[in-house]
Simulated scan of single mutants.
Amino acid sequence: MHKETWVVVCNKEKARIFEVEKFGNLREIYTMVHPQSAMKAEMLTRDGLGRTNEMFRSGHSTMDPTTPLKLKEAMNFAKEVAKYLESQKNGMRYTRMFIMAEPSFLGILRDELNHNVVKCVEGEIPKDLTKLDAKAIWEHMPIA
């Protein structure tokens, strides 16, 4: 494997991008964090959901979002990660990629990836490995 191979390790709060320097050796080259995904839902609504108190209706009503706020934040982060990966692909920084992601986030990220990025994905591992060091991450590679 050459330096054009990347390993993306992510969950809904953090994305770590590694470059394969040589077989068995990963070097972290970029990290993205999304602290909003770690927040409790009630903290995300600090401004409050829209409320109405109309005199012609009985009581108060809260306007619920159609998508849960935690999911919206995960989707926002997936868009950020996908945008970064697309820009780096356009800059010819990698030609191959492996994605290791928390299972629920993997599906969200997959939906956001550009078709040119998807063509570079050679493997997916549905595990959250964001807290592991590079050596431990390598041990989960499908080719290790």
Rank of each mutant, 00 (worst) to 15 (best):
residue 77 F to R: 03
residue 48 G to M: 01
residue 34 H to W: 07
residue 47 D to V: 00
residue 82 A to Q: 15
residue 51 R to M: 04
residue 78 A to D: 13
residue 35 P to W: 03
residue 100 M to W: 12
residue 72 K to N: 10
residue 45 T to F: 13
residue 66 T to F: 05
residue 33 V to W: 08
residue 84 Y to T: 02
residue 41 A to D: 11
residue 82 A to G: 12
residue 38 A to Q: 09
residue 41 A to R: 12
residue 93 R to I: 00
residue 33 V to F: 08
residue 87 S to G: 15
residue 65 P to I: 03
residue 41 A to M: 02
residue 59 G to R: 00
residue 61 S to R: 09
residue 62 T to A: 07
residue 60 H to S: 07
residue 94 Y to Q: 07
residue 34 H to Y: 08
residue 35 P to I: 01
residue 65 P to G: 06
residue 75 M to N: 15
residue 70 K to L: 15
residue 49 L to Q: 05
residue 55 M to W: 05
residue 36 Q to Y: 11
residue 54 E to H: 10
residue 60 H to L: 15
residue 49 L to V: 01
residue 42 E to W: 12
residue 91 G to H: 06
residue 73 E to G: 02
residue 78 A to S: 06
residue 59 G to H: 13
residue 100 M to D: 09
residue 50 G to K: 02
residue 95 T to A: 06
residue 99 I to F: 12
residue 68 P to S: 15
residue 94 Y to W: 09
residue 67 T to W: 03
residue 92 M to E: 10
residue 99 I to V: 13
residue 98 F to A: 08
residue 50 G to C: 00
residue 48 G to Q: 13
residue 89 K to V: 00
residue 71 L to S: 11
residue 53 N to P: 00
residue 80 E to L: 04
residue 54 E to R: 15
residue 73 E to F: 07
residue 69 L to W: 08
residue 59 G to Q: 10
residue 93 R to L: 02
residue 34 H to M: 07
residue 73 E to Q: 10
residue 78 A to R: 06
residue 83 K to P: 09
residue 62 T to S: 04
